[in-house]
């Protein structure tokens, strides 16, 4: 399984979760887990997703999410989960 972490940071608004998970479904990305948090007064949503079946290159999927975020004034990033494993586990 190839896992990715999708982070959404910005002002809270209606439909963020729906939009991001819709984009995931569109490209056969399976959402495994969702958590929400507040970072310096900003809304932060974190999704763990399985991207092994993603039907477009992962970099392109990340770019589509980022573009969707920009339209809504949000910072959206899809990052290979290995980055977080490497930095935070021994």
């Amino acid at each position: 399984m190839k896992r990715a972490v999708i982070t959404v940071i910005g002002q809270d608004a209606v439909g963020i979760l729906a939009a991001v998970s819709g984009k995931c479904a569109e490209h056969k990305v399976n959402v495994l887990e969702v958590t929400q948090s507040v970072l310096q007064d900003l809304f932060a949503m974190i999704m763990m997703a399985d991207v092994s079946a993603c039907d477009i290159p992962f970099a392109e999927f990340g770019e589509q999410l980022a573009a969707m975020g920009r339209d809504r004034g949000l910072s959206v990033q899809a990052v290979n989960a290995e980055v977080f494993d490497a930095m935070h586990t021994i």
Partner: peptide, 14 residues
């Protein structure tokens, strides 16, 4: 992974 670790990394990069 926990949310704090993930946000810490994102914060470091951004």
């Amino acid at each position: 992974l926990n949310a704090h670790d993930i946000l810490e990394t994102i914060h470091m990069i951004q």
